[in-house]
Design a binder for these strands. Structure first.
Lengths: 114, 114
DNA sequence: CGTTCTAAGTGCATCATGCATTTAGTCCGC
DNA sequence: GCGGACTAAATGCATGATGCACTTAGAACG
């Protein structure tokens, strides 16, 4: 599927992952996949991380890795936590919208299992 | 919020709306808002509709309105129904991903009310 | 007629993305 | 110590989606 996932939700998921554990790019990618976000290219991920740092939601430091070159390790900031909270509210309304879809949709295709 | 809603979900919602009732652009816009999709510009809506017609998911005919100029009235096709079904499956995995987010998120911000 | 309203469509600039490529450092074998 | 393989991050370029403003076009109505 092209353009998956929708761009709006990448940043919140990154913030969530980093808030749970400071991490560098590759590790964040793993976290995202564990959360169900596939198809994220590294170029998009790196650019999003740099942007979020510019926005003040993340901070980074260079740290040597056990193998290979140094990694840029990201930490969430206070502003990042605040953004994460408002993103959570956004995702919640988002989910409500999808629920409304299934409230009217009567076809096959994995009806909401609750 | 810029770029809301994510582009992937506009088409499914349009298909759902039209599958419930054949409609023209303005009426579809109303349906979308009723479903919780705000911030859709008419230019995006019209272009998406034309694209979906090219893709064979919708058909259109010109019909005179009770007032004003004729409207292009859209109807869903068989291919459209099939697409709607697979879109529903996609939205379902999408919702599951958001649920996974809230499974790890412990902050404030409207925790899932279930 | 010409003004106003409804409905649809378009031009242009901007932004996000994917793909391929680049930079740069580390590790390892020889 | 040197070349190749690998890890990590970043960038160049082309493409595609979007928003905003503007345009087309017919209908209603005085």
């Amino acid at each position: 599927m092209p353009g998956w996932p929708p761009r709006d939700i990448l940043a919140p998921f990154i913030l969530l992952a980093v808030s749970l554990q400071r991490a560098h790019g590759y590790m964040i990618e793993d976290s995202l996949r564990a959360l169900g976000l596939f198809g994220i290219t590294m170029s998009t991920l790196y650019r999003t991380l740099r942007q979020m740092e510019k926005d003040g939601f993340l901070e980074s430091t260079w740290e040597p890795g056990p193998t290979g070159p140094a990694r840029r390790v990201y930490t969430i900031t206070d502003a990042g936590h605040a953004w994460l909270d408002s993103s959570a509210a956004m995702l919640n309304t988002y989910r409500a919208t999808i629920d409304r879809f299934f409230g009217l949709y009567g076809g096959p295709g994995d009806p909401p299992t609750r």
